[in-house]
């Protein structure tokens, strides 16, 4: 057998070995066996110097050719096998994707605050500012300045918590309106959210609850502006289909006074057995009215020049209606089974 024939034979052997190599390790062995430092083909190349010039040329060419061919086959095969091996390795790493992920604890805002923030954002969008005031109020700001003088029967209905002489826990956020008007000239457009207090405790009354009151004083404000503003708010909070209606009401610091109902956002007034509106089709939502001229006078505004409207709503009650909570007392117990639902 000539050297060239032997080279050809080695090449054939190598190529067939490469074709049957099933792992990268196999292929590495094959590379060492056929192309390694002590491989036969390598030995042949090293011995070229001992050959005759004619042979030298021939053997040199064919051995190089064989090496390249084997290298190329090895490369291609290795790539193929390596890809399959990686694929197998990844499959072996599979996890149970239905197991829970690493938890990032979810916190919760209080449902009343969610409603307050929502209502406040709505009014800020309209151009209102947010005014706040103390929760311990004076008799004057809580009552007298609001047209409820000492011994007025309306005081009895406030179930007031009394502190030191002349001080009360505010029974509404209305004193904030007075403080606001005393501190600035019209136009006034404010909402006043906050905690308020009444000495009362049952499923629909808690000794502390929230109110959001609003006040607008400017030239030419009318009951129609009040109605339009509150209708837009109701649609913002309860959905585009909400309708509002006004009924006569009575509040000491507004005249005319109105109550505002919104259409039941659950049944729209179509279900006589509706749990939310009890078949009435309407939900009492807030009290409102045109600011009483004597209140405007009390804070030094000229009621002939300025008119205004004021409104008050209970965000806790709105949250009860919106989220279907049956008992107001749940709001203030700090029970996580409740808080985590919002």
């Amino acid at each position: 057998m000539t050297v060239s024939e032997r080279i050809e034979q080695l090449k054939t052997e190598a190529l067939s070995a490469v074709a049957t190599g099933v792992s990268t390790a196999d292929l590495e062995d094959i590379r060492v066996r056929f192309l390694g430092r002590s491989a036969e083909l390598t030995e042949i190349k090293k011995s070229i110097g001992t050959l005759s010039p004619e042979e030298r040329k021939e053997v040199g060419r064919s051995s190089n050719l064989a090496s390249r061919e084997i290298e190329a086959a090895l490369g291609a095969r290795t790539e193929e096998v390596a890809a399959r091996e990686q694929e197998e390795r990844l499959r072996a790493e599979a996890v149970d994707v239905t197991l829970p992920g690493v938890p990032s604890q979810r916190g919760h805002l209080h449902p009343s605050q969610i409603v307050i923030d929502d209502v406040v954002d709505f009014f800020v969008g309209l151009g209102y500012r947010v005014a706040e005031g103390p929760e311990v109020e004076t008799d004057y700001y809580n009552f007298t300045a609001l047209n409820i003088p000492e011994h007025h029967p309306a005081r009895g209905e406030h179930d007031t918590f009394f502190l030191d002489e002349g001080l009360v826990l505010r029974t509404h956020t209305s004193p904030v309106q007075i403080r606001t008007m005393l501190s600035q000239e019209p136009p006034v457009f404010v909402v006043c959210p906050g905690r308020t207090y009444r000495n009362d405790n049952d499923p629909t009354h808690t000794p502390m609850f929230h109110q959001i009151e609003g006040l607008a004083v400017d030239r030419g404000l009318t009951l129609a502006h009040l109605k339009g503003t509150l209708a837009a708010m109701a649609r913002h909070v309860f959905g585009e289909d909400a309708e509002v209606r006004l009924r006569p009401g009575y509040f000491q610091f507004t005249e005319p006074s109105v109550e505002l109902d919104i259409s039941c956002f659950v049944c729209g007034g179509t279900d006589p057995n509706c749990k939310v509106c009890k078949g009435a089709g309407w939900l009492e939502m807030l009290g409102a009215g045109m600011v009483d001229p004597s209140v405007l006078e009390e804070v030094g505004y000229d009621p002939e020049e300025y008119t205004g409207f004021a409104f008050g709503m209970g965000p806790d009650r709105m949250a009860m209606v919106k989220y279907g909570v049956p008992d107001l007392r749940l709001f203030f117990e700090g029970d996580l089974r409740f808080l985590r639902q919002f």
Binding site: R129, P187, F189, A216, H225, K227, G228
Partner: peptide, 11 residues
Amino acid sequence: PEMLPAVPQPG
């Protein structure tokens, strides 16, 4: 009727 007043300030 329902109307919205023009509020002369940014909220």
